[in-house]
Design a protein around this nucleic acid. Structure first.
Lengths: 205, 205, 205, 205
DNA sequence: AATGAATGAGTATTCATTCAT
DNA sequence: CATGAATGAATACTCATTCAT
């Protein structure tokens, strides 16, 4: 008995399709990915894809939105529920979270944002509001708390949460481009955090 | 019959074309740039462009090669000719050089490498050999010299020259994507160098 | 549980669908009308529509057939039941009937026949047999009766009933295309009939 | 020796293409005509067609414009250069001109305007301004001249130049749809003109 | 009978590349 | 050398039709 040509699974389709799209975009980038290819990967006809996403661009935006926001939610959830000191938090949950990024599917999204972002200002806006600024804000909360506690001295470092994010972006890209020559990204990230914390604490290293 | 005011010499053509291409790629990215558009910008016919570059991909590779190598040559030249201490070098010529990158035309190349690199392994190889590894090697020379001098303690930092490059990559991308919300990149870069040097020197900050 | 206020009966369905189709075709023409749209207008699912009409073309043919024949039946009925002289008939019931055409839903059918007819010879055949030739035949009966009566002289006019139909077709099309610049179609139609009758009667106007 | 794949004939191309398009539209109507088909008929590649006409719609508009305006220019030229009395003009050059329309390539344009016009208001506007209103104006000039001369009585007929155009539109459409059953269109047109002139002259017929 | 999710052939349009001039 | 007219393969998107439910 042959497989039925139609499977009705309305609820699951959008997710199945965005997952396939993420994989395809990861492989070839946005422009080089054919809609046909995404449909095939999702085990779905092109027509159905267009039932859920009006255009290829739409699909792209949906991919960005649906995979990135949950991840950042994860981070803020950790902060809110944590009773740790700032240093403990940075060395513990934050470091752990941040190490998972390079090599995870999200790293693909970073590449997509860099490649295609400039063409879609609204998407950048969304990304800024829902990911980057939220991430930086979360870090700022931690750093400020550390200053208030007396754990940290106020300095450029407590002022520039970007310094804590840098190694992640760097690792993602380095790994993407020069897998072979890439240093141990965990070590790189740890080193940066170490250096920054030491600096904030005013310790002799 | 009056002489044309500017007589274009054959030898300049390829460069004129790669410059036009760089500008076009900067505006729209590789895939979205039409060969027609590049030819128009270069003030040249499409046919002539194809006389110098066999394919669009060829042109792309030429762009990468021709703009990036001179820049890295610049850096290594500075190192070789410099009599400064390691710290002086890092805070002086290195910092100065590195600050010029975000916002310069080369930053465009970074985006191009990220977007298109994975499709062209030979280009990545070239980029690694001629840019990244040379840059890291130059830094390593400086750091080792500092350790030998007794200026710096040996540590993860002297071991990971990547830490010195991170803020540049970060700034380039941040500026590209979030121009509006971008922090002062000079300050960001300086902060990182400060923190790293302080750490290597074992000083209280 | 309250009775639904309107219970749709199965028997009405085809008619409801052809009505929706006529409206949709009127708006956008045949090719530009989507089956989906017709189904929605009819308050019916696409699947059900296909239960009644095998193809879109089928639906189209049903539309033509179902709206045009009753109209022409109306006209012949008037003729058969009328005791009037030929002139009275032409100036009375015929004129009245004919004036209602431009601006009525049937005028849409005219456009459809002109646009799509050439693709469907069987439909044209049907249209000819059931509408045009019957209409012309009815007119011929009247004109012949007038000649027999001595009301009218025999001439090209009594020979070409088409002359009486011309202003209707003209008005329908003019109104369809140039609503804004369209002359009063009633006046146009009346003028034509006047002129023709005067001619047949041999009167000085 | 094989035919050269490329023939450079920049000047002739647009006309060659519009001619092919007119023929294709005549055969199948606008919607059912494939751009591929037009290109093939014109002996040209699809790409080249798109070099001259940005879209299929554009091509359609060009077809309408390029074939219709010359025809109406012809008519107005005849009027301007004629020394005839109004009746002589109507029975002579006007009648002759008007008889050529049904069956000529322009008759195709009439069908196209009816089918597609309502979708392109700007095209209808163009058609109105450059064809219909100019044609009616030309007729009005003739009729007014006849009234001034004393040739004609003023009446609805001198007021409604549309009456003179009606048989042309009617013949075009009748021929298009019911070729087989179509009366002699020359005779139909002549009859209408006869009747109208007789009426304007107030003669007993 | 009734639904609407699913299909896929069909089409307009683009753009890197070629080649007659 | 230089041009840009000409090509055609490639691709996003549509919509009549089918069929599992």
């Amino acid at each position: 008995m042959p497989e039925p040509r139609f499977r009705r699974r309305k609820e699951d389709r959008p997710q199945e399709i965005t997952e396939a799209a993420l994989a395809a975009f990861a492989d070839k980038g946005y422009a080089a990915t054919k809609v046909d290819e995404v449909a095939k990967r999702a085990g779905v006809s092109k027509g159905l894809l267009y039932l859920y996403f009006k255009t290829k661009e739409d699909l792209f935006k949906a991919v960005i939105r649906s995979f990135v926001v949950p991840k950042i939610d994860e981070l803020t959830a950790i902060i809110d529920s944590s009773e740790l000191s700032s240093e403990e938090f940075l060395r513990g949950p934050f470091l752990a979270f941040v190490k998972t990024v390079p090599g995870s599917p999200i790293s693909v999204l970073v590449r997509l944002m860099i490649s295609e972002g400039p063409k879609y200002p609204d998407l950048l806006q969304f990304y800024w509001e829902n990911v980057v600024s939220r991430g930086l804000a979360a870090l700022t909360v931690i750093l400020e708390r550390g200053v208030k506690n007396g754990e940290f001295r106020r300095s450029v470092v407590t002022d520039l949460p970007h310094l804590f994010v840098m190694p992640v972006l760097f690792s993602v890209i380095f790994k993407l481009l020069f897998e072979k020559q890439c240093p141990d990204t965990d070590r790189l990230i740890e080193a940066q955090i170490d250096v920054l914390i030491a600096h904030m604490k005013g310790e002799i290293q």
